[in-house]
Design a protein around this nucleic acid. Structure first.
Length: 453
RNA sequence: GUGGCUGUAGCUCAGUUGGUCAGAGCGUCGGAUUGUGGUUCCGAAGGUCGUGGGUUCGAGACCCAUCUGCCACCCCA
């Protein structure tokens, strides 16, 4: 076999032990909160049938789906002339029947459609798994990344939105990451678009609106006008919609009191704030979100002071399972972008929570004769539920202490001839340099020493 | 998918108009210290200058391609 230079696929990365400690912690926080709000775990396969995924994310989304080449003699299935003349895209459709999942929501919808009979509604599930997108990587943008989703299907109650917003607030509070949770409603956006005379061109309208952060108010207005929307409508719209803090009463004045979207937003905002006054939830009429399937409330989370894009998003979709032939099951869900959350924590220096050492204590023997007893000591520690590493060869103390120091193991139990003959060990605290001797049978003694460190 | 920037020892980077320019710091390894690390001192190893072509008497430096990272667009976690 010829030698290959080791390399990673574009947009992917290895997660070192160092990173894994941090990730595990963040995942544990998210999972804990999900379970506290009574969501149940679910996992689905990395690959789905291609037709399960296509058409769910818009044209742009379809392009970003990683397709999997058929096994076997896939060429045989394609007529020669087609093979010659077809566009790459068409051809890919003929030789790929599977794809890597693009998000967790559509596979979940597929699961619900397939298991409708076995599920008690409302069904609340959470799912923490990687997804893949054939995007061009940038900072905080990977081709393989983790999403942590919580969705409820089978309930139209706005209390679900309230609880999901509370989850967002609680997770980021626990992670000590300052965020802004933006809230809007697609229905409200619809009314806004109507005011602007957007009518059929709702998509174009919100796409332009969505660019507000990047291009600024004036450019948004200009683009709207260029797109041919009603000038007077836009004029009155721009008098309030870009305000930093939008007063709901003001919105009501412009859209009328009988506005469903406004009522949704008001309800969620009020209930969340009354339960958790510190929740950083705020109404933002300019929040649009691109995904085709949202129909009600929409959420987006951005980290304060860190440019990593949004670290979470979600919303309500009235009929996601419809395309799988199961009608009338509404859903609402949120997603956490694990990789971006970690990036944000990293940039703000908030990863101090991470466990730094794999082991609490390392046992080292000075000669081969000491090794059996060293192993016995290590085993005794483990029986006491202490994470223990046995230095695998008898070596100079300098060596093993250096190793313990580098890997941040706080204690070293030293076994030499003396210790072995007395069935004891010398316990050194690497932080303070103190050391004392314990009989192996003196569990209470050495357990106390460990707890002090 | 479109456009731009980038790539030199494990890491962070020097390298002048193409002609000893293959370097520094940190890290790694060995020794000072054969039962004591994190400090100090001494010494050593490690790079076909991302990769593949090309221009040139001569290229790390120029050109082309490709890969990677990053940035903008698009989109999004």
């Amino acid at each position: 076999m010829s030698k290959v230079k080791p390399a990673l696929v574009q947009g992917t990365r290895d997660l070192s032990p160092d990173m894994m400690y941090k990730r595990s912690y963040v995942i544990s926080v998210i999972k804990e909160v999900f379970e506290k709000y009574a969501f149940q775990p679910l996992e689905t396969p990395a690959m789905e049938r291609l037709d399960t995924l296509t058409g769910k994310y818009g044209d742009e989304g379809d392009r970003l789906i990683f397709r999997i080449l058929n096994s076997g003699d896939f060429k045989k299935e394609v007529p020669a002339d087609v093979w010659q003349t077809a566009e790459s895209n068409t051809l890919a459709g003929l030789i790929c029947e599977k794809a890597l999942r693009y998000d967790l929501t559509v596979p979940f919808a597929r699961f619900v459609a397939m298991n409708r009979h076995a599920i008690a509604l409302p069904f609340k599930r959470y799912q923490i798994q990687p997804v893949w997108r054939a995007d061009r990587p940038q900072k905080g943008r990977y081709r393989e990344f983790y999403q942590c989703d919580a969705d409820v299907v089978g309930s139209t109650s706005l209390w679900q939105e309230v609880e999901l917003a509370l989850i967002y607030a609680e997770v980021f509070e626990k992670l000590k990451l300052p965020v802004r949770i933006r809230l809007n409603s697609r229905k409200l956006l619809n009314s806004v678009a109507l005011k602007a005379g957007a009518g059929e061109k709702f998509g174009i309208f919100i796409t332009i609106l969505d660019k507000l952060d990047k291009i600024g108010r004036q450019s948004v207005v200009d683009e709207w006008l260029k797109a041919g929307f009603d000038a007077s409508g836009i004029g009155s719209l721009s008098s309030w919609i870009f305000d930093e803090k939008v007063d709901l009463l003001k919105v009501e004045k412009h859209l009328g009191a009988e506005n469903e979207g406004l009522e949704e937003v008001r309800f969620v905002l009020e209930k969340v704030k009354s339960l958790n006054p510190d929740a950083p939830l705020l109404f933002d009429p300019t929040l649009a979100r691109g995904l085709d399937y949202y129909t009600g409330c929409i959420f987006e989370v951005v980290a304060e002071g860190v440019a990593v894009g949004s670290i979470g998003g979600g919303g309500r979709y009235d009929n996601l399972t419809g395309i799988f032939g199961v009608e009338g099951i509404p859903g609402v869900g949120i997603s956490f972008g694990l990789d971006r959350i970690l990036l944000a924590l990293e940039e703000r220096g908030l990863t101090g929570f991470a466990q730094v050492s794999k082991a609490c204590v390392m046992v080292t023997g000075l000669s081969e004769e000491d090794m059996p007893f060293a192993a016995e000591v290590a085993y005794a520690f483990r029986k006491a539920e202490i994470s223990t590493e046995l230095y695998p060869i008898a070596t100079k103390l300098k060596k093993s202490l250096e190793y313990a120091n580098k890997t941040a193991i706080p204690f070293v139990a030293i076994i030499g001839e003396d210790e072995r003959s007395k069935r004891s060990f010398t316990l050194k605290n690497l932080k303070t340099g103190e050391q004392s001797s314990f009989a192996l049978t003196d569990n209470q003694g050495w357990m106390k020493a460990f707890s002090v460190g």
